[in-house]
Design a binder for these strands. Structure first.
Length: 205
DNA sequence: CTTCTAACCTATTCACGCA
DNA sequence: TGCGTGAATAGGTTAGAAG
């Protein structure tokens, strides 16, 4: 899940309705006085686009700025105050802009991770699904064989006792239902510990 | 215990840039 | 000019410090 092993594992926050999404634990939330400028660098307020006339036009970051930000992000997904100020100085951007960029970047990163996870799970599901189909076909085949044998004078299986209700059938059922349960009960907490193939960053949608 | 602050998050808005 | 992208905003939660 982490870009680097150094980053904090995905730990849902307790007691939060949004805990599902809280990747990054907040236990060592640093004090960072006077840096987080709530307006200042930002150009537009909600519903106040007319105010932009007096402000700087919203600009895209330059390729150099993006390159450095991206490098920094890949070193560490979280932004500590010191690094924020350093990047701010180096890139000539407001600290708030750096913070926003990291925020948005983490968001994009997580979206990609979820897409990747979906692909992995789908692949696994397809394989298992195929396997189940093969086994079901085999069961049908065995049933047919049994029926032929009983017609020919062999011992007949009583009433409901089919191949599926035998120990083999139970094994098969148990196995498939376990797989289904496992897939249906998959949570993001599992996602934390799931070992995924290495994720090639940066990749964009 | 309550309040404040600063960090984080998701969802959303909307300007920019490209086909 | 329509659409995708991404910078920025809004509004929410949590943790930690201070009163």
């Amino acid at each position: 899940m982490d870009w680097h092993e150094s980053t904090t594992p995905f730990v849902p926050r307790p007691d939060s309705s949004l805990s599902f999404f809280y990747n990054y634990n907040n236990n060592n939330n640093p004090i960072y006085p006077g840096v987080e400028v709530k307006e200042g660098a930002l150009l537009v307020e909600r519903g106040g686009m007319e105010k932009m006339n007096n402000r700087e036009k919203k600009k895209r970051l330059t390729s150099n700025q993006l390159e450095l930000l991206e490098r920094s992000f890949q070193e560490e997904i979280k932004l500590d105050p010191e690094r924020k100020m350093k990047l701010s100085r180096e890139l000539g951007l407001q600290p708030r802009q750096i913070a926003v960029w990291f925020q948005n970047r983490r968001s994009r990163w997580k979206t990609k991770q979820l897409e990747h996870l979906y692909d992995v799970l789908k692949q696994q599901f397809d394989v298992i699904s195929k396997e189940k189909q093969t086994l079901q076909e085999e069961v049908m085949k065995l049933k047919r064989m049994l029926r032929t044998q009983t017609v020919g004078g062999y011992t007949e299986m009583s009433g409901e006792e089919t191949v599926e209700s035998t120990s083999e059938g139970n094994k098969l059922r148990g196995r498939t239902s376990n797989i289904t349960e496992a897939l249906c009960s998959f949570t993001v907490e599992d996602y934390n510990t799931l070992s995924l193939p290495p994720c090639q960053w940066p990749y964009y949608p």
